[in-house]
Design a protein around this nucleic acid. Sequence first.
DNA 1: CGAATATTTGGCTAAAATACCAAATGTAGG
DNA 2: CCTACATTTGGTATTTTAGCCAAATATTCG
Lengths: 105, 105
Amino acid sequence: MKNREKYKARAKIIKALAHPSRLMMIDSLAEGEKCVCELRDLVGSDISTVSKHLTLMKEAGLVEDRKVGQQVYYKLRVPCIMNFFSCIEAVMESKAKEQISLVGK
Amino acid sequence: MKNREKYKARAKIIKALAHPSRLMMIDSLAEGEKCVCELRDLVGSDISTVSKHLTLMKEAGLVEDRKVGQQVYYKLRVPCIMNFFSCIEAVMESKAKEQISLVGK
DNA sequence: CGAATATTTGGCTAAAATACCAAATGTAGG
DNA sequence: CCTACATTTGGTATTTTAGCCAAATATTCG
């Protein structure tokens, strides 16, 4: 794969994570399968908006869906995603410390 | 911190990763400090564009800078970022397998 | 000081992402 | 078949992001 393409492919997946509502849904899906309506209640947006977020994550390969009756259930496809968050917290802490040290100068 | 804010803060950091050029630079910075001009050669965009990418990553807390003479060196602030990529690859593989299984149907 | 080099900032345009509403689709049950 | 319900799709307006050029800033060196 051409180098430029490799980073583009990675960016697509990371972009699919890069939205507050989507992160909220991922956190929730870590507990297990949820239907679209449950996720809508969680994030509080219009259901069409939620559906589009889910489609986008599905296309990126983050989640998969399953139809049961008239409902559609989504679940995480690759649980290692959850490991991200500890590092994200580390970034925030590191940033916070920097802020503190700047005050002292 | 209010829940909604927590996810917004996380999203800001993840957004700062979510661009091919920025991922390319992060990969390169994993080897060690680089000046802006080296990173411009790497990604091939206008230097003002590269500078803006770096500023954005700095504001997110991903990198820090250091001025040496007339050059500015950037380095990774939180190395655990690099752990992301193995999971990203896993997402891509999982996606690829899905594609293959669909062909067979 | 004045020229040369590295980087950042401001301004602007084009492209991408987001959100909502309305309409379409799919499924279940009477 | 008709209605109700869950979800997706289409269309559109708004916001955000990206990239380039030109100008400003900072530093080095003669």
